[in-house]
Design a protein around this nucleic acid. Structure first.
Length: 873
RNA sequence: GCCCCAGUGGCGAAAUGGUAGACGCACGGCACUCAAAAUGCCGCGUCCGAGAGGACAUGCUGGUUCGAGUCCGGCCUGGGGCACCA
C-alpha cells in the first residue's frame, strides 16, 4: 500500500492549531487533580534561540506532556529574563533602544519556541522588563527593607577611569577595560545589599532535604556557603608602631592547631591597618594601589602571583612571645573573616608560596602518621592532611582536633586590654548579596535620597518607579544619572526636592521569584499567597549546570524572604532539580581573526586533516577549540535549519537522543537526517498497518506470536515510563527504537499472520497505540497524526498514558551468564524461580565450565538470583 | 589558585557491584531498481586463529571484592563555577 510521506511542516502547523483551539495547555487553577509544576529556566532574549534552548525546552516539554498523560494538572509556563547588559551594549553599538531591542527579540524567540510545539500555557507569559513585573519586584524590595533584610554598605566595583563607568567582571580583560583599554581600578561605592547571610545556616542545613537535587549541586552550594568553625585570635602589636594606636590585630583561623608553625601575619590591602599605614608610606600605598588594579574578581586575585609588602610592624606570638612580621598581601580578602590571617607555611599552600618568595621560616607542626619527627620537612608542597602535632610546646602529641580545642581554651581565658585574646567563631564564606548596578536596563531600586530625611523608601502607592524611555547611549555610564528630569523628585517624607536612587537591581533578582509570579501572573500583589502555596514548589526545574550556585541559591534565599514578608509560606522553591549539560561547538576564525559562524564554514577532510573554508569565498578558516556556544564567539547553531528541513519533532527527538541529558554535547548535525528517517519509518509503519489492524481490540487468548508482540510493547512501555520518570531521555528513546524494530519486522515479514490470526491483529494494534503514546511526549505532532491515522478521534495530548500489564514483563525461563573465577564461560537457562541448588547442579553439567575448572572441584558457587552464577575454583 | 563534574568502539552512547559495548549515527556487503534515491536484510571494539574458539579492552595507576566501567586512594586530560555574563 502506498502511503504519502509524513509532511512535518504541514502537519505540525495543523496540530499546533488544534492544541490552541482546544486550549489543551491552558492550566486551570481550580482543576482538582494533583498538581505538577514543571519549569525550565527562562531564556535571556538574546535574539534567536539556539540549540541549547531547544535541548532545555524539549526536556521540559517531554516532562510536561508525560505528566499530563499521567493525570496531573500540569503548570508549564514561559517567560523572559529580559533585563541585562547585552541590551545596553546593543544600544551603544547599533543605536537601538534597549526596550525595542529586547521586545523585538522576545517576539522572534516566542515565534521560534511556538514552532517547536511546546505545551506551554502562554497566557501566563511575562518578561521581567515589563513594568507590571518590576513594579511588584520593587514592592518586594520595600517589604524586605521593612523586614530588615536590606542593607546599605560600601563595596568595591571595577572602575574604568577613561570611560568613567563601572565594569562587569566580564568586561575586564587582563586588568583593562574592554572598550577603553584603560587599566581598571577598584573603587568603593555605597551600594544596596540583600542580607542572604541571615539565612546562611538555614540555607546550609536545608540542603539535606533537597533529595531530588543532584548531589553535586548540593555539594557546590554547601562549599559556597562555606561554614567553618574557627577562632578569632588577637595578636599583640610589638612596640608602639601601630598607626592608629591599635594594640592588637585580629585574625580568623580554622587552624589554631598550627599556631606554633606561624611565620607571618598578612593583612588584606583593604584592612584598616593597611590603609592607615599606606597613608604614611608611599611605597606601601603604591603596593596597595597595585593590588587594587587587579580588579575585583576572586579568580584573578587567587591566580595572581602571591605578593606582599612588609609593613615593618611586628606582632607577638601569644604563647612564645616571639615576634613575627606583618605583611600586606594581595591574596588576603577583606570580605572573609577579619581581613587578616596568620601564615603557617608548612600546612597551607598559599602561605608556603608566600613564605618561599619572602624567605620566611617554614616550621612543620603536624606530623604525618608514621613519619620521623626528626627527618620530616616541607619542601614546595604544603602538608595539609591529618597527623599528630609536634614542634608545638604543650600541644605536642595531640591530634589536630584536640590541639584546636586546647589552643581555644588557653587563649579565650586570657585578655589583652580587658578583651579575650581569642574567641571561638562560626564563620561563613557566603557574603551578602550586592544588588546595586550602575546601569539603565534593570529594575530601579525604589529609594529616594533626601538631604534632610536621608534614605527614604518610595511609598508603595507611588510604585512603579518606571524607567524613563528617553535615554541616550551615546556615551558610557548610566543614563539615569544624567537624565534631565527623572531623578529629581519630591521627598515623600518632607516634600523638599530630593533625588531618586539611580542604581538598578542585579538581574539575578528578577530571576529569583519569577517561578512564584507564574502562579498568579496578573495579581495586583507580587503573589496570591494561596496560589503560590498551591503550585509551589516547582516539582521539576530544568536548566543549565552553570546556574548551580548563584541563581539557585539566590532563589532559595528569596523564597525565604518572601515567606518572611508574607508573600508565600514555603522555604524551598524547587523540589526536583535537573541540570542539563551544555551544547558546545567548534570555533572558527578567519584570516583577520574575526569569529566566523559554523553556518558560513565548510569543513572537509583533506589528506586525513580537517580543513575549513568560507562557504562564500573559499578562504581558509582556522579551526579553534570546542567551546560552550556563545554569541561572542559566534559558534552558535540556529535550530531553524533543522526545524525547517525536517520539522520540530525531528529537532526535538534529535536533541534528546543519544547523549545523556546531564552531559555536555558537542554539536553535530550528522544525525539529523537519521532522525528524520526514523520518524518517517514510524509514520510508514503506523499508516500502512492502520488499515490492516482495523479496530481490533485485545484478545483474551493470544497466540504465541501475538503474545510476543504484547510483551515487546509492554516492556517498552514499562521502560519508557521508568526512564522518562528519571529524565533519562536517551535511554527511553533507545527502548522506543527497539519496539519499532520489533513491530517493523513483524509487519514486514509476518504479513500473512494478520489475516490468519485475529489475536495477532489485536496485539499489533495495541502495540501501535502504545508506540504512538510513548513517542508523543517527544514527537507530539507526529503522534497526533498517527493517532488520527489509527482512527482515534481525540488528541493524544489529552489521552491518558497506557496502562501497563505487569504480567507481560515476567519471563518463565531466564538465561544466566556463568562465570568461572569471574570470567564468563557459558550460559545456563533455568526456570525463573529455580533455587540455588538446582542452578548449581545445572551449571556443573556444562562442558565449558568443567573445562575451565580443569578437573578441580569448585571452592564455592555464588548464585545471584535472576542475575549471574560465579564458580570459584 | 579554590570548589564541582566528566572520560567506554570511527562517532553519540548503554550497563540496581553481576554477560562491557543495548540502541542510534557513520561505514561496508547484499537485495529491490535500467539507474539513482528511498526501503529492506546482513556485518561492524582490537589482536591471534581457516574455524571452533581464545587473549586483550571502559583516560593512567594502585587497592577492596567471588566478581569493578561502577566502590576507595593517587595521577592525567577536558568542562563548569568563583559573587557585575546570564
Amino acid at each position: 500500500m502506498a502511503t504519502e510521506r509524513y509532511n512535518a511542516r504541514e502537519a505540525e502547523a495543523r496540530w499546533q492549531k488544534a492544541w490552541t483551539d482546544n486550549e489543551v495547555f491552558k492550566t486551570r487553577n481550580e482543576d482538582p487533580r494533583a498538581k505538577y509544576y514543571v519549569l525550565e529556566m527562562f531564556p535571556y532574549p538574546s535574539g534567536r534561540i539556539h540549540i541549547g534552548h531547544v535541548r532545555n525546552y524539549s526536556m521540559g516539554d517531554v516532562v510536561a506532556r508525560f505528566k499530563r498523560a499521567k493525570g496531573f494538572n500540569v503548570l508549564h509556563p514561559m517567560g523572559w529574563d529580559a533585563f541585562g547588559m547585552p541590551a545596553e551594549n546593543a544600544a551603544m553599538k547599533n543605536k537601538v533602544h534597549p526596550k525595542a531591542w529586547t521586545y523585538e527579540n522576545i517576539a522572534t524567540m516566542r515565534g521560534q519556541l511556538q514552532s517547536m510545539g511546546l505545551s506551554l500555557d502562554w497566557a501566563r507569559e511575562f518578561a521581567t522588563c515589563d513594568v507590571a513585573y518590576y513594579k511588584r519586584q520593587q514592592r518586594l524590595f520595600l517589604d524586605f527593607l521593612a523586614a530588615g533584610l536590606v542593607d546599605r554598605k560600601k563595596s568595591k566595583v571595577n572602575w574604568d577611569p577613561v570611560d568613567m563607568t563601572v565594569l562587569a567582571n566580564e568586561q575586564v580583560i587582563d586588568g583593562r577595560g574592554w572598550r577603553s583599554g584603560a587599566l581598571v581600578e577598584q573603587r568603593e561605592l555605597t551600594q544596596w545589599f540583600l542580607k542572604i547571610t541571615d539565612y546562611a545556616e538555614d540555607l546550609l542545613t536545608a540542603l539535606d532535604g533537597l533529595d531530588k537535587w543532584p548531589e553535586k549541586v548540593r555539594l557546590m552550594q554547601k562549599n559556597w556557603i562555606g561554614k567553618s568553625e574557627g577562632l578569632r585570635v588577637r595578636f599583640e602589636v610589638a612596640g608602639n608602631a601601630a598607626p592608629a594606636g591599635e594594640r592588637s590585630i585580629e585574625v580568623f583561623t580554622t587552624r589554631p592547631d598550627t599556631l606554633f608553625g606561624m611565620s607571618f601575619l598578612a593583612l588584606s590591602p583593604d584592612h584598616p591597618v593597611s590603609k592607615a599605614l599606606a597613608a604614611e608610606n608611599a611605597d606601601l600605598a603604591a603596593f596597595v594601589e597595585e593590588c587594587h588594579r587587579m580588579g575585583t574578581s576572586v579568580a584573578v586575585l587567587e591566580t595572581a602571583e602571591k605578593k606582599g609588602y612588609d609593613t615593618g610592624l611586628r606582632v607577638k606570638h601569644p604563647f612564645t612571645e616571639e615576634t613575627y612580621p606583618v605583611y600586606v598581601a594581595n591574596f588576603v580578602l577583606m570580605d572573609y573573616g577579619t581581613g587578616a590571617i596568620f601564615g603557617c607555611p608548612a600546612h597551607d599552600q598559599r602561605d608556603l608560596d608566600f613564605a618561599r618568595r619572602y624567605d620566611l621560616s617554614v616550621t612543620p607542626v603536624v606530623l604525618p602518621d608514621g613519619a620521623d619527627p626528626a627527618a620530616f620537612t616541607v619542601g614546595d608542597v604544603a602538608y595539609t592532611d591529618d597527623g599528630t602535632i609536634f614542634n608545638s610546646d604543650f600541644l605536642d602529641g595531640r591530634s589536630v582536633p584536640d590541639a584546636k580545642q586546647a589552643v581555644a581554651a588557653a587563649l579565650e581565658s586570657r585578655t589583652i586590654d580587658g578583651k579575650p585574646v581569642a574567641t571561638r567563631q562560626v564563620n561563613y564564606r557566603l557574603r551578602d548579596w550586592g544588588i546595586s548596578r550602575q546601569r539603565y536596563w534593570g529594575c530601579p531600586i525604589p529609594i529616594i535620597h533626601c538631604d534632610d530625611c536621608g534614605v527614604v523608601p518610595v511609598p508603595v502607592k507611588d510604585l512603579p518607579v518606571a524607567l524613563p524611555d528617553d535615554v541616550e547611549f551615546d556615551r558610557p555610564g548610566n543614563p539615569l544619572d544624567r537624565h534631565p528630569t527623572w531623578r529629581h523628585v519630591a521627598c515623600p517624607s518632607c516634600g523638599k526636592p530630593a533625588r531618586r536612587e539611580t542604581d538598578t537591581m542585579d538581574t539575578f533578582v528578577d530571576s529569583s521569584w519569577y517561578f512564584a509570579r507564574f502562579t498568579a501572573p496578573d495579581a495586583e500583589d507580587p503573589t496570591i499567597p494561596a496560589m503560590a502555596d498551591a503550585w509551589l514548589p516547582v516539582d521539576q526545574y530544568i536548566g543549565g549546570i552553570e546556574h548551580a550556585i548563584l541563581h539557585l541559591l539566590y532563589s532559595r534565599f528569596f523564597t525565604r524572604a518572601m515567606k518572611a514578608t508574607g508573600h508565600l509560606s514555603l522555604d524551598e522553591p524547587f523540589r526536583g532539580l535537573f541540570t542539563q549539560g551544555m551544547v558546545t561547538h567548534e570555533t572558527y576564525q578567519d584570516a583577520s581573526g574575526a569569529w566566523v559562524s559554523p553556518a558560513d564554514v565548510k569543513v572537509e577532510m583533506v589528506d586525513g586533516i580537517r580543513r575549513a573554508t568560507l562557504v562564500t569565498t573559499g578562504e581558509p578558516v582556522t579551526i579553534g577549540p570546542v567551546e560552550k556556544m556563545s554569541k561572542s564567539k559566534l559558534n552558535v547553531v540556529d535550530p531553524n535549519d533543522i526545524i525547517e528541513t525536517y520539522g520540530a519533532d525531528a529537532a526535538r527527538w534529535f536533541v534528546l537522543s543519544d547523549s545523556p541529558p546531564e552531559r555536555d554535547v558537542e554539536w553535530t548535525d550528522a544525525g539529523a537526517q537519521g532522525t528524520a528517517r526514523f520518524l518517517q519509518r514510524v509514520w510508514r509503519l503506523v499508516s500502512e498497518s492502520a488499515e490492516i489492524v482495523g479496530t481490533a481490540t485485545t484478545s483474551p487468548d493470544p497466540s504465541p506470536a501475538a503474545l510476543a508482540i504484547r510483551k515487546a510493547a509492554h516492556k517498552a512501555l514499562a521502560a519508557v515510563d521508568e526512564n522518562l520518570e528519571g529524565l533519562r531521555f536517551n535511554v527511553a528513546l533507545a527502548k522506543i527504537y527497539e519496539l519499532v524494530n520489533v513491530l517493523g519486522s513483524a509487519f514486514a515479514n509476518d504479513r500473512a499472520r494478520f489475516d490468519a490470526d485475529a489475536s495477532f491483529q489485536a496485539a499489533f494494534r495495541e502495540g501501535l497505540e502504545i508506540l504512538v503514546q510513548i513517542v508523543a511526549p517527544m514527537t507530539p505532532h507526529l503522534a497526533e497524526e498517527c493517532w488520527s491515522a489509527l482512527g482515534n478521534t481525540g488528541l493524544v495530548a489529552m489521552t491518558p498514558w497506557p496502562t501497563l500489564e505487569p504480567a507481560l514483563l515476567v519471563e518463565d525461563e531466564i538465561t544466566l551468564p556463568v562465570q568461572v573465577n569471574g570470567k564468563k564461560r557459558a550460559d545456563v537457562t533455568v526456570p525463573r524461580d529455580a533455587d540455588a541448588a538446582s542452578v548449581e547442579a545445572a551449571v556443573m553439567q556444562i562442558d565449558a565450565v568443567l573445562k575451565a575448572l580443569e578437573g578441580k572441584a569448585p571452592k564455592k558457587i555464588i548464585v545471584v538470583p535472576q542475575r549471574i552464577v560465579n564458580v570459584v575454583a
